[in-house]
Design a binder for these strands. Sequence first.
DNA 1: CATTTTCCTTGACGACTGTCATAGATAATT
DNA 2: AATTATCTATGACAGTCGTCAAGGAAAATG
Lengths: 221, 221
Amino acid sequence: MAEPAERPTAAGTAIPARRDGRGRGAKFEQRRAELADAALKTLSELGYARTSLREIAQNSEFSHGVLHYYFVDKVDLITQCVRQYKGRCMRRYDPIIATAGSAAQLRHEFSLAMAESMVQDADLHRLWYDLRSQSMFDPAFRADVAAIDAGLCAMTWRVATRIGELAQVSPPFGPEVTYGLMDGLFQQALLRHCAGDAAAADYLIMAMDEVMARFMPLAPV
Amino acid sequence: MAEPAERPTAAGTAIPARRDGRGRGAKFEQRRAELADAALKTLSELGYARTSLREIAQNSEFSHGVLHYYFVDKVDLITQCVRQYKGRCMRRYDPIIATAGSAAQLRHEFSLAMAESMVQDADLHRLWYDLRSQSMFDPAFRADVAAIDAGLCAMTWRVATRIGELAQVSPPFGPEVTYGLMDGLFQQALLRHCAGDAAAADYLIMAMDEVMARFMPLAPV
DNA sequence: CATTTTCCTTGACGACTGTCATAGATAATT
DNA sequence: AATTATCTATGACAGTCGTCAAGGAAAATG
């Protein structure tokens, strides 16, 4: 198989040997997050294969050497990125879930919010699929990718169960299958959008509505 | 956006200036295919980001310089790879479609064949998702990726319509939506499989059966 | 203020990348 | 057999990569 070797050191372990238990670690983590943010921007613009540490540093206000002060590795930096991405996108649809008054409304607003996010954060979304693909080759990314995937699955499931509650029906599939189906449609639409198809967002809304109408009917079947 | 520039020359154009119309081109194309095959092997093992021309040449019986005799570019080589991959996987399920005697049988055999292919050709499948992600960043891959995607969509649709014929019902969704849903489940299972989940194949079979039972019922609804 | 610790820049290292020019080997043609 | 065309190997090129060591700047500590 010849896969990349296991990580020699656990990510984030003993970076600067924080020798005293004082509050020094907070500022350190803050700068780490700041740099990971610059990396996130670079990665979402160029993709994993074309992103270098020097380019990341150029998207920050620091020089390239500082990256090795805050991160042991390129992998350490990127996994930090991925974790940061997670926190940002994981609760995106919760407001909609909380405020929707009917199943039909939630269904529709969910489709709209998905399509809007697909256009608005297209760069971040394509990066997610890029990194998820990388995790199939490089074991170093698997743990974080799996964690995000589980989070997205849970997010999808919250929507599905809430629709079920409002319509007084139970979702026809389990969390994983539901997430797999939605994600397939989303990725398909994103691919079109990135290829320049201006109708991609409308297609996503249409497809989501169509599928949810079958899957999560408004009345018990 | 800062996307990579457009390809200066069309792929495969005027490679060695085949000066006479004789049958010389056939042997040329044959070696091109042979080298692209070595590249396909390398790519499926390492992924796009980690694959170099020298490594590809090492997986063939030639030296690295030969690649620039048969291909103008790294992009030219990889797009040739992608086209070769296309022809290999596009008609995989046609025998099943032709021989299945009932909707239930076709549904079941399709799920089994998908799962078997996922395990058997896992390296090629993950490469496909890798390259598809690349196409969201690099326009050079978009045309070929779109062509393959359309082919896979058509393949899925042939299965769906045949099931509909046998069961005397019409598929509930159009070709694109049907393909998007199936592809989502497949990719999810592949991700698990590549992460070492031994139950990924069984999950795919279960999920496909479950979804198809709802989507393509055996009797008119 | 002096001293120590933390932070950041600079410049270099070896390795690797895609590309290409040169020239030798092989095959086809005259 | 001589000559030309085709194919392949070698080695070098200008860059870029991740990494790291050395030292200056800044801040915190005494």
